[in-house]
Design a protein around this nucleic acid. Structure first.
Length: 488
RNA sequence: CGGGGAGUAGCGCAGUCCGGUAGCGCAUUCGCUUUGGGAGCGAAGGGUCGCAGGUUCAAAUCCUGUCUCCCCGACCA
């Protein structure tokens, strides 16, 4: 049969769409810019959620849930914030329909007194609650996360990477001091970095955003930036230090130990289903999706091979204790005993779906006490004895996890360069990847670079040593190099 | 939101220029043969041609509107 996935070298965008379709992660819905997340895609998201949720709870956070709808007046309370989101808000204006000939129409009688905004993010509705929850320093900190959907009316969408409605988590915390809030912002950035690297096997650069890329209403936006296979950067997560902006907008004060009434300090942080897009574009190949073992809904699939019914029962009988021993290790393993597909077809299907390890067992293996192992990441096959297989695959899955990260990290590092002049920068940015260059720190220069090269400042990396130089555009003094790339 | 392309069976497409009542491959169902990298033969089922109007004796085909997707741009977490 013909290949169903376009080669990456031929058309990277089409390849991405093909992988999403063939791996059955998601599909387009009848609603523009919205997607249907299919069971396979949702299982992946559930695994991501599970680990992130655990990490949030380990760092002292609790889950809660706030409304989908936000009164319009709430959004206008914080000036920067409104400005940032005003152009992409869905607005609910009416509350009911009425039947008319041939269908239904909006009942003009049901117009709302105050329109409701479908949340693009929940700072405002949450801070309205926090005002009531916070009186004393003893009420602080408040460390809350919510798992929710949000809507941003995007002009141009791509499955997972940018959809009008997406799933995410948003953490919203309140603190007594600036230091505590900054510490929280950095702590959660580190949680994201750890998750990206240790679970998604996706190396990231941590840093802070330039003023123009900053979250609307934040004093500082920290981020993790990843590099995709095609050389474009992807913002994979953000953690914002909100200062006292929302506390002032919503009048949230507490009485401190010294008896003074003070505004609360805030943070917010989030990652979304966009991470799935990042996962796809970090590891997958021309055969389809590649999922790191720690996040794979199914880690191992077993494909039995047989001609006759006798062979089938012999193979299945042989496979059963093997599968059981692997399952006892806490590994997610599935037997694909469907009769209506041939082994070759199953191999291709499971590869497209990114299952990390495949075990094939046929009459030959039954006879010799072996089985065939195939790695999804390297496509390597090997014949191994079935004795001690559970320990073997347990280690192998960890090896795959590690090697996926190493491979991605090597690729990112090899595509990260330094440019010392604007000419060199223009030349290098064409080739894709991360470029470190000196920048004078002004939005004007950043804008000029963006207009002329389509590259943006992805971040000002954290923990980088001061390295004074001259801005590649203006020649003005620069304290350190910043990270540029073309981005999704 | 601007420019370009597309929407016909579950998926991929032909048919549209030149109007005559819909076809191919894969998938599905049944039968037989098959099964270590996307099986073969035979038979069967499945589509108000994105949707809504219009022109016409007759519309997938022509006209108008509209929705959705893809690429580029503008905008943007």
């Amino acid at each position: 049969m013909a290949k169903k996935i376009t080669d990456r070298s031929k058309d990277y965008s089409q390849w991405y769409l093909d992988v999403v379709r063939e791996a059955e992660l998601a599909e387009h819905s009848p609603v523009r810019g919205c997607m249907v997340v299919r069971p396979t895609g949702y299982a992946l998201w559930e695994n991501m959620k599970k680990e992130l949720d655990r990490m949030f709870k380990e760092t002292g956070h609790e889950n809660a849930y706030f409304p989908l709808f936000i009164p319009k007046s709430f959004l206008s309370k914080e000036a920067q914030h409104v400005e940032g989101f005003a152009k992409e808000c869905a607005v609910v204006t009416h509350s009911r329909l009425k039947s008319v000939e041939g269908g239904v129409e909006v009942d003009p009688e049901s117009k709302l007194d105050e329109e409701l905004i479908v949340r693009p993010t929940s700072e405002t509705i949450i801070w309205d609650s926090y005002r009531n929850w916070i009186q004393s320093y003893r009420d602080l900190p408040i460390l809350i996360n919510q798992w929710a959907n949000v809507v941003r009316w995007e002009m141009r969408t791509r499955l997972f990477l940018r959809t009008m409605e997406f799933l995410w988590q948003e953490g919203h915390t309140a603190h007594a001091t600036r230091e505590e809030a900054v510490e929280e912002t950095e702590r959660m950035l580190e949680v994201y970095r750890t998750f990206a690297e240790e679970y998604m096997a996706m190396p990231v650069i941590t840093g802070v955003k330039s003023e123009s890329e900053r979250f609307a209403g934040a004093e500082e936006t920290y981020c993790i930036e990843a590099l995709m296979q095609d050389g474009k950067a992807l913002q994979a997560g953000t953690s914002h230090f909100l200062g006292q902006n929302f506390a002032k907008a919503f009048d949230v004060k507490f009485q401190d130990q010294d008896g003074e009434h003070k505004y609360v300090w805030a943070t917010s942080w989030g990652v979304s289903t966009r991470l799935i897009g990042g996962l796809i574009m970090t590891h997958s190949d021309d055969n389809g999706l590649v999922i790191p073992p720690r996040l794979a809904p199914t880690q191992i699939v077993v494909v039995p091979i047989y001609r006759s019914d006798e062979q089938k029962s012999a193979v299945l009988e042989y496979a059963e204790p093997i599968i059981e021993s692997i399952r006892e290790k806490g590994i997610s393993i599935k037997l694909d005993d469907r009769d209506n597909f041939k082994p070759g077809w199953k191999f291709a299907e499971h590869e497209a779906k990114g299952i990390p390890l495949r075990i094939a067992i046929g009459p030959r293996d039954v006879e010799n006490g072996n089985l065939e192992l195939a790695r999804r990441d390297t496509l390597e096959k090997s014949i191994v004895p079935s004795t001690g297989i559970a320990e073997y695959v347990d280690e192998l899955l960890e090896t795959i996890q590690k090697e996926l990260f190493e491979t991605a990290k090597d690729r990112m590092e090899s595509r990260t360069r330094v440019a010392n002049s604007y000419d060199e920068f223009r030349e290098e940015i064409e080739k894709g990847g991360f470029i470190y260059a000196h920048w004078d720190g002004t939005p004007e220069t950043e804008e000029k670079i963006k207009e002329e090269t389509k590259a943006t400042i992805r971040c000002i990396p954290l923990n980088s040593e001061p390295d004074p130089g001259e801005c590649i555009v203006t020649g003005k003094r620069s304290e350190r190099r910043v990270l540029f790339a073309r981005a999704y």
